[in-house]
Structure formats: structure tokens, C-alpha cells
Design a protein around this nucleic acid. Structure first.
Length: 447
RNA sequence: CGGAGCGUAGCGCAGCCCGGUAGCGCACCGGUCUGGGGGACCGGGGGUCGUGGGUUCAAAUCCCGCCGCUCCGACCA
């Protein structure tokens, strides 16, 4: 992709309304544009990242046995009255009246909807377990939206819903999702902390939040750093005891939110060098809530004995749009964003020092196609701008590998390579640079 | 929802207190020179001052209503 043929409206000025780094950087790098309080357009660069995160989430959820579908954004309020949540959720629900004077809501979540689908089609224990997920826009009419897409009113969320015959089976589904979440966050290169959580409005007994620690989150979290070094074996875990062991590996370490934190236990359990406390951004939340919805909504299944019983459910959310901001909070410097390879909008940025130098353009085109043959995405800054501006913009939008092509170096078939992650530069041969970056990018994109 | 503040060119702001027909930086357009970290010079374009009303000979400026946005607090992926 050439910069002049794409659309990246960058801005040098820090927008007055944006207070936290991710919000400022997303606006300055032309990823998003605010349309209303808590409502944003996703411009091409932001959209690319959003889609990449979405893809990773989808792949991992499917590996864990969840099946993708799509439910509508608008829901009839009747379902919410049936579950008893209509009053509980209250003003956060955006209500819409259609021309027939029917009340609809822009869904803040989909437990009711999916339960309705389930009860319409599934009648037998033989069809269980089942886990359905979708990635859909939600709307919660927050009292005070803030921090850009971190706490918007409209947001993209992956929500999965599990259906099981009984509590034990349901636990299995829950643990599978727990492990799947660990894998997702690993691929996104963010350290998340699973914290035992209140289940809030969703309700239920077993619940974990997955948070990342940054300077600008909301609410304190305390944890044991050793959590971050844990490795998952890649085997598919299918029986409860294996799953329990894998999850237990994580939950054995101390982690607590402010309200549940116990300084004494913290100090007993966690050696000083592993103690970590900071502000948390919640990026995922999983719940097991049994019959909370299936019972009032009569989502019954027939068990082996021929009896009708309420299905056991759980729900599992990931804030996809929030993750874009969360990753930036986690990975940026004064100059701009630093994307992990797995979600970067382009892997390689190429700066053309002299916009009208034909020889440079030719070399760039060759380098570009070679990267593209290796499935790396390339953005060539071919604008007729000063070099300084091009560097500043490249750093701002956060591409991991930045090549400088200029008349000085191409005579010797060399190129300057900047590694954004380490903020280091090397002068390499063109072939060497291509090989090096290709292997680095692939290695880091996988894992 | 309680408290505070803001709305003037695409962005960041000054002007408002003390009323007299709107300004700065960046961005943008044309040109010349440049080009290895936001380059220089010359020449240009662009604003119903959020909106409705009131006071006044005269309102960006004073008064009232409305709308929008932001910040601090209580709530949420």
C-alpha cells in the first residue's frame, strides 16, 4: 500500500479532549474519529487493527469449540422482561421506538437473545455441550463515556454463551474458555491478570475478569508477576481434571481487585520482587451462572432420565474495540504507538527520502513485492513531505519495522532499518534486511 | 446523577473582564529551493464566533433559554 493511495489523516497536535495516551494516539494516528460522546468512526488504519484482533479472537474461540453466529443489535424488550433484567439494567439500555410504537433496545449484551434461540431449537441433552458466540456491536448508555474507545458507549464485543447439561459440564466449558482467553491475550502480546470477580448484573457464581495493568486504568489491582511467565501446553484439554489443573496453574497466584485485596495475604504469598500493583483495564470477563436465565426463560432440555431440566449456562465477553486501546496503553512511547506484530496494521513501513527520485521508487517497489510475497503488509510513505515528517508519522502509527530508502544508501544496495520495538537502527544490505524482518515478523506473528 | 468547565478557520488556541464589524501557530493551496528525524522563503484561500432570543446606535464580547462536548466523583466489556 502506498500512503498517497490510502487514508491516514495524522495530526501533530494533541486533541484537547483526549486525556489518556491511547485515546490521544488513536486520534493523532488517524485510527478513529469521534462522532458523538462515546461513539466513534473507525478510519481505515484503526479498522485494520480492529479486524486483526477480531480474527485472533475468532480463531482461538473456534479452536476451543465455540461456533460463530450473528445476533442482531436490536432486541425486543419482551425478552428482557422475561428474564427479569429489564429493570435491573435500567438506564444503560438505549431504548428505541419503531413506527409501530414497539419498544426495542440496542443490545448491551445477548444472554436473553441467545437463550431464546437455544430454547427454540435445542430440546435434548444429546445436543450438548453447545457454545455459540458472535462478534457484534453493543451499546451501553454509560453515564459518562471517557477515554475514547476504552470506555465508549458503542463498542465491539465478542460474546460467547455456553450451554451444558449440568454444573460439572458447565464448569468444563467455563475452564475451556478461561484457557482460550489466556491464549488470545498471549497472541495479542499483552499480560493479563485473571482476577476473581463479582458477576454484577449478569449474575452467577463463578466469574473471572481479565485485566491488564497500565498507568491509566481504573481501579487498583494487585497480583503476582509470575503469572506472566506461565506457559500453556498446546494440547487440547478436554477432561475436567486436566482443565482444572491448567486453570489452577493460573489461579494459584495472588490476584485481587482493590475491594478484595488483603495486604497481609499479599505479602505472605508473594515474594517482594514479584509483587505488582497498578491500575487495571478489564478486557475480558467470564461468567458461569447456571440457570439464571434458562429457568425464568424456560430453556429446558430433556435429560437421560426423560426429565426436563433448565440448561446450565455461562457467558464469556471480550471487549474487542477496547482491546485496541488497551494494547496501545500497554505499548507506546513518546513518539507514538508500538504495535505487536500480531495486530499491526502493516508490518513494514518504507520511507522514501526523496519523493521524486525514480531510482528510489524502483527499489522500493522491488522490496515491497518481496515482502508481500512473504505475506507481510507494507506501507510506503511516498508523500512529497519532509523526511522528518515522514519519520514522525511512521513512529506515530507504530509499524514495527521502518526502512529508509534514499539515494545515499541505495548505491551500495543498503538500507537503514529501524526496529520500533527496541528503538534501534541498523544499516543492512537490502537482502539482509528483507530476510531479517521476514523471519522476525513471522516468528512474532505466530506464537 | 452531583460538582466544575468549555464551544471563535480542519486542529490547538488568543480576543470576552473593559461592546465598535475577528487574530496567532500548525494544517491546507500555488511557486522556488530542499530532502538521512516535524526544512526555508515568497504568494494565497478559508470563520452564519454552537444555537435561539433579549439589551444596545452597535454584541464573539453583556443577560436568559436550549444544544453539544470535556473534566472530577458514584457505575460498567
Amino acid at each position: 500500500m502506498y500512503w498517497t493511495e490510502f487514508f491516514i489523516p495524522t495530526n501533530k497536535e494533541i486533541p484537547a479532549d483526549a486525556k489518556i495516551p491511547s485515546h490521544q494516539l488513536m486520534i493523532r494516528s488517524g485510527m478513529i474519529k469521534q462522532e458523538s460522546s462515546g461513539i466513534y468512526s473507525w478510519l481505515p488504519l484503526g479498522f485494520k487493527v480492529l479486524k486483526k484482533i477480531e480474527k485472533i479472537v475468532r480463531e482461538e474461540q473456534e479452536k476451543a469449540g465455540a461456533i460463530e453466529m450473528l445476533m442482531p443489535t436490536l432486541q425486543a424488550v419482551e425478552l428482557w422482561k422475561e428474564s427479569g433484567r429489564y429493570d435491573g439494567y435500567g438506564k444503560e439500555m438505549l431504548k428505541i421506538i419503531d413506527r409501530h410504537n414497539r419498544f426495542l433496545i440496542y443490545g448491551p449484551t445477548n444472554e436473553e437473545q441467545v437463550t431464546e434461540i437455544f430454547r427454540a431449537f435445542v430440546k435434548s441433552y444429546k445436543n450438548l455441550p453447545l457454545n455459540l458466540f458472535h462478534i457484534q456491536w453493543k451499546f451501553r448508555d454509560e453515564i459518562r463515556p471517557r477515554f475514547g474507545v476504552m470506555r465508549g458507549r458503542e463498542f465491539l464485543m465478542k460474546d460467547a454463551y455456553s450451554f451444558d447439561l449440568n454444573e460439572e459440564e458447565s464448569k468444563k466449558s467455563y475452564y475451556k474458555m478461561f484457557i482460550s482467553y489466556i491464549k488470545i491475550f498471549k497472541r495479542l502480546k499483552i499480560n493479563t491478570i485473571p482476577v476473581v470477580a463479582d458477576s454484577g448484573e449478569i449474575g452467577g457464581s463463578l466469574s473471572h475478569e481479565f485485566s491488564i495493568i497500565t498507568n491509566t486504568g481504573e481501579g487498583q489491582v494487585y497480583c503476582d508477576k509470575r503469572l506472566f511467565d506461565l506457559e500453556l501446553d498446546n494440547d487440547d484439554l478436554n477432561n475436567l481434571s486436566d482443565l482444572e489443573r491448567a486453570v489452577g496453574n493460573y489461579t494459584q497466584f495472588y490476584s485481587a481487585t482493590e475491594d478484595k485485596h488483603n495486604e497481609k495475604i499479599f505479602k505472605e504469598k508473594v515474594p517482594e520482587e514479584f509483587r505488582l500493583k497498578g491500575k487495571a483495564i478489564e478486557v475480558g470477563h467470564i461468567f458461569s451462572f447456571g440457570e439464571k436465565y434458562s429457568s425464568p426463560m424456560k430453556a429446558y432440555i430433556t435429560n437421560k432420565e426423560g426429565k426436563n431440566v433448565s440448561v446450565y449456562m455461562g457467558s464469556y465477553g471480550i471487549g474487542v474495540s477496547r482491546l485496541v486501546a488497551a494494547i496501545i496503553e500497554y505499548s507506546h512511547d513518546k513518539k507514538g504507538i508500538i504495535w505487536p506484530n500480531s495486530v499491526t496494521p502493516f508490518h513494514v513501513g518504507i520511507i522514501n527520502v526523496q519523493a521524486d527520485n525514480k531510482e528510489c521508487l524502483k527499489v522500493i517497489q522491488e522490496i515491497k513485492s518481496e515482502f508481500e510475497e512473504n505475506n507481510l503488509e507494507v506501507l510506503v510513505d511516498d508523500r512529497d513531505e519532509s523526511v522528518g515528517k515522514k519519520y514522525a508519522d511512521m513512529d506515530l502509527i507504530g509499524l514495527p519495522y521502518i526502512l529508509t530508502i534514499g539515494p545515499r544508501d541505495i548505491k551500495e544496495k543498503k538500507v537503514d532499518v529501524k526496529f520500533r520495538h527496541t528503538d534501534t537502527k541498523e544499516n543492512l544490505s537490502i537482502e539482509g534486511a528483507i530476510n531479517r524482518i521476514t523471519s522476525l515478523a513471522k516468528e512474532k506473528t505466530r506464537s
